[in-house]
Amino acid sequence: MNNKELMLTAYKVRRHVLDAVHSAGSGHPGGSLSICEILSLLYFEEMKNLDTQNPGNPERDRFVLSKGHCSPALYGVLAEKGFFPKSNIMKFRQIDGILQGHPSLKDVPGVDMSTGSLGQGISTACGMALSAKLDNKDYRVYCVMGDGETEEGQVWEATMFAAHYKLDNLCAILDYNGLQIDGNIADVMSPIPLDEKFRAFNWNVIYVDAHDFDSLRDGFAKARACKGKPSILIAKSIKGKGVSFMENQAGWHGSAPNDEQYAQAISEIDAVIKELGGNI
């Protein structure tokens, strides 16, 4: 896919995010909208051996959404990829749907790990990467974390583990949107500076723009080229990206738009989709 097609995919995913949280009446739009380009590039270019007919293919690259509350973005990209019919999106968080509020390995085709309790996904990603090393397999493991999530001590236990076992097949992506639930990460419980912390833990630190495909592509290439240590892309992002009134607002972390707000948000997303030559 070229950048334009990837962007079209990212905006279709944004549409799924809005459909999901609006139809459910709950969920987390902010942090979902900030990772749409990251997930689109991962699933449509970077990750290898994905097979929608055989989601459990043992040779596949793995993905862990450590900040599991952003499941709408993951479900959106999995649906675009074809792991399950898009109609499931409208059943997000509903009692008769498969799409659980937080990713569930046993319920949703294409999901590689159940997450939702912050700080644990990165450890599970370490386990997957270590297992690849033990089996001499060359699949890679990708893990998206939140910046607020790094306040969990377990993140640093995992960080130490990954460097100690030289897990260069592990690539973490930090969604650096600067916000958590109670406000700015700098005000609530500052984990800053994050880059220096990861470097001090002997990780390869790469700075990228979370909404720019060239920057992301370049970052993933650098991570792949780095041997002997794990890599992290510190992806500067905008929480709520793509919906003007949600951008950089902590209040949109975990609340669903009402009908009017939904219509407004969709019209903004659809305008971009149209501009990119996509049909709605």
Binding site: A24, G25, S26, G27, G68, R93, Q100, G101, H102, S104, S114, T115, G116, S117
Partner: peptide
């Protein structure tokens, strides 16, 4: 707690 699901 409802919609958040089993993890919560």
């Amino acid at each position: 707690i409802g919609e958040d699901g089993a993890s919560h």
